[in-house]
Design a protein around this nucleic acid. Structure first.
Lengths: 169, 169
DNA sequence: GAAGTTAATGTTATATTATAACATTGTTGT
DNA sequence: ACAACAATGTTATAATATAACATTAACTTC
């Protein structure tokens, strides 16, 4: 029988159609499990922010989140959103996308990974994939000059398959 | 005999010691050549901004540049810096480092390349390297899902060799 | 379970980064 | 000289993010 973990892995978000509600629900369960395991507190505002990210089909800016929080009875000063986002990012439940100053829920919260984001400049959706960092070209280059990698940012911009079909170049 | 191009290539900025004045001077010449070839106008403010970037041993923020411009007789409203930076970035003479909202002069302005930045969190210097994008893992992943890559952002944070030696973990 | 301690949230204010919009000047091509 | 376009000047403001300190909630140790 497939584990929940496998099931989540197989749902890794791409530009393909998928059962988003199921995907979001599984990932929320996974986040709760992960927090329980590690003794982290998934407080109401943190969970709400994660839900907002999971629900969105595109990355959300901190102020988008803030706006949604304010319509849900939460306080809506910037630090409220940034703190929740910091918590989620620090604990691997979300990622920050530097190129667009926005945030997405992590699609593989259980696995230690170096995420890669493919940002469609047309539909603004973002796919998270990953490569294993061990032995990668990046890893070898860093090794060669004695650089100790703590965090990687890999983001590519372009057009997803659907948008290329819709508006061929 | 070595061409100027080869000489520049061999000087690609890393965390190693190097003759920075020579490096900056060669790159400025290269930028002038490149603009002449392409019919681009390396105007006074654009050249000044490039010089500031070349002179700096670390990336500069737009407002750092603005401050330096204002002490050199240039106008100092934000668009002045951003326009010059946009020009340099668009034409491959500088790069924007997303992770730290800062800019560096390109160390290989002649070559079409996908730069990689190694950002030292201690000394704040940044090394530019590059990998050929053709056939990379990233390229294969994109191909697999039909994503057409227009631009890549690859930035790694960590500790450079010198800083690791200075303050061993 | 009261007191001390740490973690989380509330709140005000402000810092930092970036762009819109429109006027003016400079350059290029005819 | 004139039209067309590129670049710069200028004012204002948008968008993103954090500092600092007060308050409340949760945990812990006796």
């Amino acid at each position: 029988m497939k584990s929940k973990k496998d099931e989540i892995g197989s749902l890794a978000v791409t530009f393909r159609e998928h059962d988003h509600a199921k995907c979001a629900s599984l990932l929320l369960d996974a986040a709760r499990d992960l927090c329980a395991e590690r003794g982290l507190r998934l407080t109401p505002v943190r969970e709400k922010v994660l839900k907002l990210l999971l629900k969105s089909h595109a990355p959300l800016g901190a102020y988008d989140i803030l706006a949604e929080l304010s319509t849900s009875g939460f306080r809506a000063q910037p630090p409220v959103a940034y703190r929740a986002l910091d918590f989620l990012v620090e604990n691997g439940l979300a990622h920050r996308i530097e190129k667009i100053n926005a945030f997405v829920a992590c699609s593989q919260p259980h696995a230690k990974h170096s995420p890669i984001f493919m940002i469609c400049n047309d539909c603004e959706q973002v796919a998270e994939t990953s490569i294993k960092s061990q032995g990668s070209s990046l890893d070898r280059t860093a090794r060669a000059i004695g650089f100790d990698i703590r965090h990687t940012v890999v983001e590519v911009e372009g057009l997803c398959a659907a948008c290329r079909e819709r508006a061929p170049l």
